[in-house]
């Protein structure tokens, strides 16, 4: 089985988010970058599926400039066999999906895994765009994934429940918590990652359709009103008369 895993490079989850240039750009000063946590799940699943190389190969792909290479190396350390970096700054999901689809078209993959969403721009757009661009099924938010022969069985979340569906490979699956336990690279993985192939591919010309033009940080809540432990009636009262939420 040939698996492609799409990984994005995102600010560490504990990052304080600020903006520069009149609030029009994300301020990356001092920001630590990591593999998007959902993509780590996708990658861990892929590594499990190929079973130490016995049952296939895992290729990771990232659309990004040279600064994303440490993240790509980490993916190789976790267990991917090779990596592709499409040498471009991601503009929007449409741009990214087109770059990945272009690569995927000429390299028959049986399975394409993405995260359910990137934790920076949170579009949750790339997986279904890939499915459409490649004319194959996609499931954007999968909680479970099993592959048997040529068939994928996927459990996806729906409002107030879950749905189990099947599809013949190839499919695109956006992975969420539950698909796999995130793997941590070990020493052997880290050493090995250095010598694994990382190929740089030039982007195709695609115009972005959207852009992030301005940011605000959400309003800070006015100070918390503390209520005595013994006075829950007061809380009920405030929720009714002041907050008007019950």
């Amino acid at each position: 089985m040939k698996i492609l895993v799409c990984i994005s490079n995102v600010p560490d989850t504990t990052s304080k988010i600020t903006f520069t240039n009149n609030n029009s750009e994300f301020n990356n000063t001092g920001i630590q970058y990591i593999i998007n946590p959902y993509d780590e799940i996708a990658l861990s699943k892929a590594v499990d599926l190929v079973n130490g190389g016995a049952d296939g190969t895992v290729t990771v792909i990232n659309v990004g400039d040279v600064s994303t290479e440490p993240t790509i190396r980490k993916a190789l350390a976790i267990g991917a066999d090779q990596a592709i970096r499409v040498n471009a700054t991601p503009k929007d999901a449409w741009f990214v999906a087109n770059q990945i689809a272009e690569y995927a078209k000429s390299n028959d993959f049986d399975l394409i895994l993405t995260g359910r969403e990137s934790i920076d721009y949170n579009g949750a757009q790339v997986p279904a765009m890939l499915g459409e661009l490649l004319s194959i099924p996609s499931v954007s938010i999968a909680k479970k994934l099993t592959i048997e022969g040529n068939e994928a069985t996927i459990e996806r979340e729906i409002e107030g429940g879950k749905e189990v569906l099947t599809a013949n490979l190839p499919v695109v699956v956006g992975t969420a918590e539950g698909v796999a336990e995130p793997k941590i690279p070990n020493m052997r993985g880290i050493m090995g990652a250095r010598s694994k192939p990382l190929e740089i591919v030039e982007p195709i010309a695609v115009a972005a359709l959207t852009s992030f033009s301005h940011y605000e940080t959400p309003a800070i809540r006015s100070n918390v009103k503390l209520i005595e432990e013994s006075n829950v009636n007061e809380l009920v009262n405030l929720l009714h008369t002041e907050a008007k939420v019950i």
Binding site: A124, E132, I141, R156, I158, L209
Partner: peptide, 23 residues
Amino acid sequence: NSFSGKGLAPRIATKLEAGLVSG
């Protein structure tokens, strides 16, 4: 922007070459 909406909107946007804003 429901679970189904997340699976549909990017496909519709791709078909229509439309810019997509989610959420």
